[in-house]
Simulated assay, not measured.
Amino acid sequence: MYTVKHAAVLTGIPAETLRMWERRYGVVAPARSEGGYRLYDDAAIARLTAMHALVEAGWSPRRAAEQVASGTTLGRTSDAAMPEGAEDEGDLGVLVRLARDLDPRVMARELDEVFARADADTFLDDWLMPALRQLGLAWQRGEVSVAGEHFVSASLQRRLAAVLDGVPGTDDAPRVLVGLARGSRHELGVLAFAIALARAGAEVVYVGGDLPPDSWVVAATTQRPDAVVIGVPSADDVPAVRDTVSALGAVRPELPVLVGGRHQDDVGAGEPLGHSLRDAATAVVARLARS
C-alpha cells in the first residue's frame, strides 16, 4: 500500500491531480489509514498509470477514466476508440499480450515497433517501467503464466543489454558499479537504470544479479568505482541488500552506496535514489562530477 506521495512518484501524476481524479472521475477508491490518509494498492497504481498514459496520448480525462473503468486498457486500444488525431502511445499492455501468446516472431515484431518509436529520453520511465508493472500485476492475477513472464523478461533483457552496450562512452566519466544483491535475479529494473546512467554520462560497470556481499567488495576494491548502485526490486531482497551495504561500508566508507527499486525505502541503509530513472541518473552523475 502506498501513500499519495509515493503513488505520485510511481505514476508520475501530481498528488493534487490524483485527488482530483478520485473525486471527479472515481477512477480509484483508495483505502484509508487509521489516521485518514489515502493508501493505494498495486491495482490502483495500475489504473492510474493507464489513465495517465491515455491522457498523455490525447484523451480527455473523463474519457480516459471511462476507458480504464471498462477494464480494456490492459490490452491494445482499438484505433476507433482513440480520439481524432491521437496516437496509441499509451499501450502498456503489450507485454501482457506477448506473455500470453508465447510467439517469438510476434515478440520480435512488437518490440521492434516499441523500441523504434520510443523517445529515448522518456522510454524507460514512461513506457518500460509502467508496462513491466502491468505484466507483474497480470502474473499475480493468474492471467499470465510463469513461462510467459520469463519469455518476455528474457527477450527484454537481451534488448536492454544491447541498448546499454550501444551507449557511447565519454572520457573521464564517473564510474558506477550497478547490480543486484545475493539471491536477487529480477534484473530488468536495475538494467534499465544502468542505461539511464550511461545516457546521463556515467561509465557503467554492470555486474548483473545474485552477487554476494564478498563479490561486491572485490568489485568495489578492484574496479575503484565512484559510486555503487544496488537494486531492491522485491521485499525478499531487503536483507541481502543491507548485508551488502554494510560490507561495502566496512572496506570503503567513503564510497556512495545508492539503492533503487520498488523497496528501496525498506532497506534503511544506503541512499535511496527515488523512483524516476532519468532524474535519479542525472542527479547521480551531476553529484559525482562535482566531487
Rank of each mutant, 00 (worst) to 15 (best):
L124C: 07
P213T: 05
R32T: 12
A8Y: 05
A57Y: 04
E187T: 13
A280I: 04
A50W: 00
P104K: 00
A15M: 11
D119Q: 07
L288N: 01
V27C: 02
T11Y: 01
L258R: 00
L132A: 05
L128E: 00
P225M: 03
P174E: 02
A15K: 12
R105P: 10
A69T: 10
E143S: 15
R242P: 11
R97N: 09
S155D: 14
V163G: 07
R76Y: 04
S276V: 13
M129V: 14
A173Y: 04
L160M: 13
H186S: 07
M129R: 01
G36W: 02
V229G: 08
R182W: 07
P213W: 01
L156G: 09
E22I: 08
H6V: 14
W139S: 06
R278T: 15
T3Q: 07
P272A: 05
G231E: 04
L177Y: 00
L188A: 06
P256N: 06
L74D: 14
Y206D: 06
L211G: 03
E113N: 09
V94E: 09
V106S: 13
G136H: 00
T49E: 14
M51K: 00
V190Q: 01
D91L: 02
A138K: 02
A57I: 10
E16S: 15
E16Q: 15
E34L: 12
A7K: 03
F151E: 04
V146K: 04
L95I: 09
G35M: 10
D165S: 15
I45R: 01
L288G: 03
H150M: 09
L124T: 09
R290M: 12
L98P: 14
F193C: 05
T170Y: 00
P61G: 07
P83G: 10
R24W: 09
D171E: 15
M51F: 03
V228D: 06
G270E: 05
L164K: 05
M20D: 12
P256S: 07
A44I: 10
L188H: 05
R158N: 15
D91M: 02
K5I: 11
E66F: 06
V152G: 10
R278E: 14
E16F: 11
V28T: 11
A86F: 06
V259D: 03
A131K: 00
T222I: 04
V4Q: 12
E34R: 12
V259G: 00
A240T: 08
A29N: 13
H275D: 13
A219T: 10
P168N: 03
S246M: 00
R159N: 08
P239M: 07
V238Y: 01
E89Q: 12
G209D: 10
S153Y: 04
P233W: 02
R117S: 14
